[in-house]
Simulated assay, not measured.
Amino acid sequence: MLDPQARALIDLLTARAIPPVHTLTPADARRYYRERRFFTQPDPPPVASTQDLQADGPHGAIPLRVYRPAGTAPDAVLPVLVYFHGGGWTIGDLDTHDVLCRDLANGSGCAVVSVDYRLGPEYPFPAAVDDCVAATRWVGANAAALRVDARRLAVGGDSAGGNLAAVVCLVLRDAGDALPAFQLLIYPATDMRAVAPSHTTNAQGYVLTADSIAYYRGHYIADPAQWSDWRASPLLAGDHSRLPPALVITAGFDPLRDEGRQYADALSGAGTKAEYVCFERQIHGFITMGRVIDEANTAVALCAAVLRRALA
């Protein structure tokens, strides 16, 4: 059964004739996402501090926002989560995920560094990957100045951001770099081919549709030949061993549900520690909707608790 609160949200979107994202230009889709987030997101909780910075990257400067959790001393050295926002590699920014990053910081006791990576179609694949790898390396290299512990660095993200977090771990492992201590993958996209059964069973009616998936994918990757590149589809990587422990969260009415489960299984099958939790009654994107979906707050609390334990 679909969560009644999720059903009420879907019915309201239909009643108000909110245009589907695949009918909008990327510029309009970005603007609508920023403007409409206030309806579904909780009020931003206070944190100890926020700071906007920039990391150096191969395509130029990468905007970052650093959060320190409420109640922490300015000079305390904290574990850190490098976070990549969702939005189909096409929409989303530091502001659309500000509340979630604040909640994760406060709940986990970690600093959070949110990454404003480049988006398609202006910057197609693999620009987002390049930015996220560079940002993660930058945080590790500047840990002392940021007052964070590079040995207790996690990466995470939701949807497209979960995809990017998984790919960052693969890139760093293959490069012989220091690995993150943990990866938090919230309904991640892991297979650009969109062939898992849930892409059929959940193709329509649950906010993220087959049409919107094609829209996002088309703006990120213009050439279908690149769908099988593991930097786009981490499920297709040849080796899932020697990666950081993971928490993979999915939603039961999400087209991406099955590929998220497949990624957790691939990690476990290769000997990488992975925990898997499916919020069976939920839709894609629910974790940022805590104002209207109570289970979103449960999911955020779960993520924060697992981060706290993993980075202790």
Score class of each variant (00 low, 15 high):
Arg68Val: 08
Leu64Glu: 05
Ala178Phe: 06
Gly109Ile: 04
Asp130Trp: 03
Ala246Cys: 02
Gly271Leu: 04
Val171His: 00
Asp265Leu: 09
Leu9Trp: 13
Thr25Phe: 06
Leu53Thr: 01
Asp158Asn: 14
Trp230Arg: 14
Pro44Thr: 13
Thr23Val: 02
Tyr276Val: 06
Gly109Asp: 04
Asn163Arg: 03
Tyr32Phe: 11
Pro197Lys: 12
Thr209His: 10
Ala105Pro: 05
His22Ile: 03
Arg34Cys: 01
Ile249Phe: 10
Arg68Thr: 11
Thr25Leu: 00
Gly260Asp: 10
Tyr32Ile: 12
Gly157Asn: 04
Cys110Glu: 02
Arg309Gly: 07
Thr190Arg: 10
Phe125Gln: 03
Ser159Tyr: 12
Ala61Phe: 05
Phe279Pro: 06
Ile186Ala: 11
Thr288Arg: 09
His97Phe: 11
Ala312Pro: 00
Gly57Ala: 11
Ala61Pro: 13
Ala143Trp: 05
Ser49Ala: 13
Leu172Gly: 06
Ala111Ile: 09
Pro26Trp: 11
Val148Trp: 05
Leu104Ser: 02
Leu153Thr: 14
Asp265Glu: 15
Gly161Pro: 07
Pro63Trp: 02
Val80Leu: 07
Ala160Lys: 02
Leu81Gly: 12
Arg308Asn: 10
Asn297Arg: 15
Ala178Val: 15
Tyr187Met: 13
Ala160Arg: 08
Phe125Cys: 10
Ala143Val: 02
Ala128Pro: 07
Pro19Trp: 02
Ala29Val: 09
Arg147Asn: 13
Met1Lys: 10
Asp93Trp: 09
Asp258Arg: 02
Asp191Arg: 06
Leu119Asp: 03
Ala154Asn: 05
Glu35Asp: 15
Leu164Trp: 02
Leu302Lys: 12
Trp227Asn: 14
Tyr67Val: 11
Lys273Ser: 14
Val248Arg: 00
Leu12Arg: 14
Thr209Arg: 03
Gly238Tyr: 04
Val21Ser: 07
His284Phe: 07
Val292Ser: 01
Tyr215Lys: 13
Gly107Met: 10
Glu122Arg: 14
Asp294Ile: 00
Pro245Asn: 01
Phe39Gln: 14
Tyr216Pro: 12
Asp56Thr: 15
Asn106Lys: 03
Gly157Ser: 01
Ala246Trp: 00
Ile18Val: 15
Tyr67Gly: 07
Ala160Ser: 15
Leu256Gln: 04
Arg34Phe: 04
Ala301Trp: 10
Ser212Phe: 07
Asn142Gly: 07
Leu267His: 00
Phe279Ile: 03
Asp56Ala: 15
Val171Ile: 07
Asp229Cys: 12
Phe84Glu: 13
Met289Cys: 14
Val99Gly: 02
Leu172Trp: 00
Arg261His: 11
Ala178Trp: 08
Cys169Asp: 05
Ala178Ile: 13
Leu13Met: 15
